[in-house]
């Protein structure tokens, strides 16, 4: 019994001692450093966990100018469709660090909400804040995402203008393979099938996704070349069944293709 009592008292004393040491150390830190401590503790919990959110709230309370905490807190709200809370937090992050978070917010507006105007506004503002620097919101070329906004707004000529910038003004090794797909879709709509096919063929050489085959087949059908079109459709279905197609767990990608898209074209052009 005496041993247990001794262990208990020892443990409590040790706990109090550790607490006092940590507390005194915390008090010596600058406000931002204190907030960072709360923030780094939050990382021990999963995204969306209420304890994680609470720890980030403490970080914000400690230092209300801590932009990253606002942004991180916004993520789980936006992913769950609570855009009033998520976007309000993101607004605060953008207000504090526009260059860092405008691109991210633009991408949320573009992909999760199809708010093409709002997204374009954010991308244009970001671009104007960083002259002579090529921004890449969430790793995508800024002109590529700007083109997607114009496409969503139904402005194909501007979409093509920005896609040309994204592809032709960039070192080829840095061009996102999807840019060729996006450019070909706009070119198909504008009736420029030959150029569209060049882009798609280029896309296939680096990443033979079913999506490229689908649009390639589509362009061939438009040019009255059903035999080639049907061949590409078959290849596309093969790639699709192997799992080589674009998809995203959070949202539908622009121009994403489905197996039924292939079957619909096959029915229309190949089953005669």
């Amino acid at each position: 019994m005496r041993i247990i009592k001794a262990i208990l008292i020892g443990s409590i004393s040790l706990f109090i001692l550790i607490f006092l040491i940590v507390f005194s150390w915390y008090q010596t830190l600058e406000t931002r450093k204190q907030a960072e401590q709360w923030f780094s503790l939050s990382k021990y919990y999963r995204q969306g966990n209420l304890r994680r959110q609470w720890l980030m709230e403490q970080a914000i309370k400690t230092d209300p100018s801590f932009a990253e905490a606002y942004m991180q807190q916004s993520i789980s709200h936006n992913k769950r469709g609570d855009f009033s809370t998520g976007m309000a937090l993101l607004e605060k992050a953008v207000e504090l660090k526009p260059v860092r978070y405008l691109g991210y917010r633009g991408s949320v507006k573009l992909y999760m909400l199809h708010d093409y105007e709002g997204a374009l506004h954010d991308f244009l503002r970001l671009d104007s804040l960083t002259p002579n620097f090529r921004d890449a919101p969430r790793g995508e070329d800024i002109y590529q995402v700007m083109s997607l906004c114009h496409e969503g707004l139904g402005n194909d000529s501007l979409a093509l203008f920005y896609l040309n910038k994204a592809i032709d003004e960039e070192d080829p090794q840095w061009v996102d393979n999807q840019a060729y797909l996006y450019r070909s879709r706009v070119q198909i709509r504008l009736g420029d099938f030959e150029r569209a096919m060049d882009n798609l063929t280029h896309g296939i050489t680096t990443n033979p996704l079913a999506d490229y085959y689908y649009y390639l087949a589509y362009a061939h059908f438009q040019l009255n070349n059903p035999q080639k079109g049907c061949e590409y459709l078959s290849e596309g279905v093969e790639q699709f069944n192997l799992g080589y197609f674009r998809s995203n767990p959070y949202y539908e990608l622009p121009g994403q293709v489905y197996l039924s898209d292939f079957h619909e074209l096959q029915k229309q052009y190949c089953e005669k």
């Binding site: 999963r46 969306g48 966990n49 709200h77």
Partner: peptide, 17 residues
């Protein structure tokens, strides 16, 4: 922990949303 696109057990009542 860094991967968000795989299932993880968090008590549902402790989650946002």
């Amino acid at each position: 922990m860094g991967q968000n696109t795989v299932p993880h057990q968090i008590n549902t009542k402790e989650k946002v949303g």
